[in-house]
Design a protein around this nucleic acid. Structure first.
Lengths: 351, 351
DNA sequence: GGTTAGCACTCGATGGAGTTGAGTGCTAAC
DNA sequence: GTTAGCACTCAACTCCATCGAGTGCTAACC
């Protein structure tokens, strides 16, 4: 048996209807609402074929059919191929980002909130994670007698700051002098390099042992990868869908959304593809067999890639979600690669 | 009719049992499990009295009784008065904070997670919000040609950082010179003062207009109060309790937990009392009539007050929650008032 | 050969009747 | 004041009949 054009049309109608209603769809529904030229009996025969081909499942013998993961896969693939990415809510995305926000974490949190409210699903936004940054400037700023703030600027603009202990009789000028020497020595190094160079520097700059040792500890601590910032929005949206009317499922889902580390791994998924749609079992997470995950990436000035994703039931409104994610990704990229006046450096053409 | 000692004992038994089981308790249960010397009939009479006094409610005539908000109030008050704050999980609280964490936001997120996992309820932690900070050091750190990072140290140790635009031909030394002058001029000012002083400074330090104007905008932006950081943990815990088996209620609750601004207001509540227990209607939030909120405060080195809170069903295990919050508050205070080596400046005596 | 009408059949959902059992209130006796 | 006993209430549960959406199959139709 083969997939023909009519089967395809009927399958698409079934998926559309199921996405809309969430109820198993019967042959009569299709015959009335979609393929008015065919009778329910014909549709029934076709549906029976589609079931045999593995595109439809039947919860019970006397219920309608529901699309299988394989059907969604086909649906999404053909949709992507055709490039039918509607742009209905473009202004909406833009308008949500009108206020200027600058801090990275704020941007991420905000994005998650906007994304969830636009899609009505759960949104996850991951902060960028790139190659190991290289030091550009190191500066010590006096905080109080006996402590100083370490400010490290890297080529990726990522700034780590932490307070270290110093001798109480060091003044701002001394700290600045040390900062200059450090910057000259370390510019272009990665944190790993910096750690390696440190012992020698400590020998050379004797008298400032305390500060340098503090920095040393700081560098080595900074080496191990920091878990990226994860923002989740609209977890409660998920409860609106009947597939989560089961309390146990809902609880499992919610607690997964709370363990950010695991969630980050799931969303990041396999590699850093610009665009992925994972349907049901494809997510690889047992708890999410009846969820789909759509992700896109955005990038920052330093070329690091961040991820934005939407988690919804497998009967997700894929086209809408993909379109919104697409725009959102562009919007974030624009915002984060823009210079400080807000002029984008290389604005992506949109649509 | 009066409240006597026996009525009190029975009421306490009812509350204890209801907190444990969540099922309306009947006279026989009390007679068997708690007041073995009295028959169920006697208990029945007493319960009838307690209902008349407003301490008990009856869902239907043929069901057991459940404690009213008034009963919980009495229960909590008498418990607090007696000072019965068990210390059962002290080590547990401590052990969760063994790893050193320094960044304020990390501490807060971590605290929310620990608090929720210890109590099995939903935990909310608010970052401190204090008096207007006073400037201590202002320093400009070169980031790239044309931009610099502003680092501002205040007496509260709160460090705001943001990137401003500068003339591309300014080098590190020039920036340092400007930083010194600024620090000398501004030390001790609030942000409001700083804004006021700015125009005059711009006149005096001509040639550096661009930098100063950037700073000006930055100061005035920083003036308006930033919404405090809110960390929520264990929202899914709430779904384990039968009072939230109703999906609609659950959804309302969850979406409230997601709107951090509103949540912060609720948790912060009325004033900055060291300790509050709000039961059901006392929360003042219609959505939370069958929740209770217990909050405590912690403080940072700058004397600012942050809030930690636990939200649970009205039949919350108050004594346990109060004890955990108490310890947690102390622990946070210790950690945040400690100097950089981890030695507390003025360690609170514990228990 | 594809399409359609018709019909028997399946099975979850809905709703009413009956039963159970936990719990109460009341009364009379201790 | 306490208790035993009893009638009464009412949510929860089970059982059962009914309903209806939907299927599969067959025979007729174009």
């Amino acid at each position: 048996m083969q997939m023909d054009e009519r089967k395809m049309r009927i399958l698409r109608a079934i998926i559309d209807d199921y996405i809309l209603t969430g109820v198993p769809v019967g042959s009569r529904t299709i015959s009335r609402k979609y393929e008015t030229s065919l009778s329910s009996a014909t549709i029934r025969n076709e549906m029976s074929d589609l079931e045999e081909l593995g595109f439809l499942d039947q919860p019970h013998v006397s219920a309608g059919r529901i699309p299988s993961a394989k059907a969604y896969r086909l649906y999404v693939d053909s949709m992507l191929q055709a490039g039918v990415i509607p742009n209905d809510s473009a202004e909406s995305v833009l308008s949500h980002f009108s206020g200027k926000i600058h801090q990275m974490e704020d941007v991420i949190d905000h994005a998650a909130r906007v994304l969830s409210s636009l899609t009505q699903y759960t949104a996850v936004v991951l902060s960028p994670k790139g190659t190991e940054p290289r030091l550009q400037t190191i500066q010590l700023v006096p905080v109080s007698a006996g402590s100083a703030l370490v400010v490290i600027v890297t080529d990726q603009g990522v700034i780590r700051d932490s307070v270290i202990r110093i001798s109480p009789d060091m003044d701002g000028d001394t700290l600045y002098a040390i900062s200059r020497t450090l910057t000259d020595e370390m510019r272009g190094c990665t944190l790993t390099d910096a750690c390696r160079k440190m012992p020698e520097l400590i020998r050379r700059m004797e008298g400032n042992d305390e500060v340098l040792r503090g920095l040393y500890g700081y560098f080595s601590e900074g080496q191990r990868p920091r878990s990226p910032h994860v923002a989740v929005g609209g977890t409660s949206n998920m409860l609106s869908y009947p597939e989560y009317s089961d309390m146990d499922k809902a609880r499992t889902f919610l607690s997964l959304m709370e363990t950010h580390d695991k969630l980050a791994d799931i969303i990041r998924g396999n590699g850093e593809l610009a665009f992925t749609v994972r349907i049901g079992p494809e997510t690889g997470v047992p708890e999410m067999v009846d969820c789909s995950i759509v992700t896109a990436t955005y990038s920052t000035r330093g070329g690091q890639q961040g991820t934005i994703g939407v988690i919804g039931p497998t009967r997700m409104r894929y086209s809408r979600v993909i379109s919104i994610l697409n725009m959102m990704g562009h919007e974030l990229t624009d915002m984060l690669t823009a210079d400080e006046d807000g002029n984008p450096e290389n604005r992506n053409e949109r649509r």
